[in-house]
């Protein structure tokens, strides 16, 4: 079987709104990807540990609680510290425009806001993963 795109979907923050993240999980699975869902209320620490152990290509983060300006930077910083800085981080949720700009500057590759289609998300993941060159020596 050919190489699979691996995606970690995470739900940090205290809210329990997992409708969106579950729809995205099902859509990415149906697009042939391997999707690891971490469950509700994960700390940045737990999310980053999972992302590294699972060696995912992309980390998708769903935040609807309004705490995005705290949580996204925490996840990105921790990923970098732990040697997972090459993993792409994307997100979804209720995020005002000016925050989007700030978060993209902080290292979030892409943010999807309410109404985004799963087709767009799948498309973005495929293209972003393909564009990311991995230069590594095995031995």
């Amino acid at each position: 079987m050919s190489e699979k795109i691996r995606v970690l979907l995470a739900k940090p923050g205290l809210d329990g709104h997992d409708r969106g993240v579950k729809v995205v999980a099902a859509a990415l699975r149906d697009a042939g990807m391997e999707v690891i869902y971490t469950g509700l209320r994960q700390t940045p620490e737990q999310i980053v540990t999972a992302a590294i152990q699972e060696d995912v290509d992309v980390v998708g983060v769903s935040i609807l609680s309004g705490a995005h300006m705290t949580l996204f930077p925490a996840i990105i910083d921790l990923l970098r510290q732990r040697g997972g800085g090459d993993k792409l981080v994307f997100g979804g949720g209720i995020i005002p425009d000016e925050d989007i700009a700030a978060l993209e500057k902080a290292g979030v590759s892409k943010l999807f806001t309410p109404g985004a289609s799963t087709v767009d998300i799948i498309d973005w993941v495929r293209k972003a993963v393909a564009a990311r060159k991995k230069d590594e020596k095995l031995l």
Binding site: G13, L14, T43, S65, G66, A67, M69, T70, L71
Partner: peptide, 8 residues
């Protein structure tokens, strides 16, 4: 766990 969520 309340960090960033107070009053939001």
């Amino acid at each position: 766990r309340s960090t960033g969520e107070i009053g939001k």
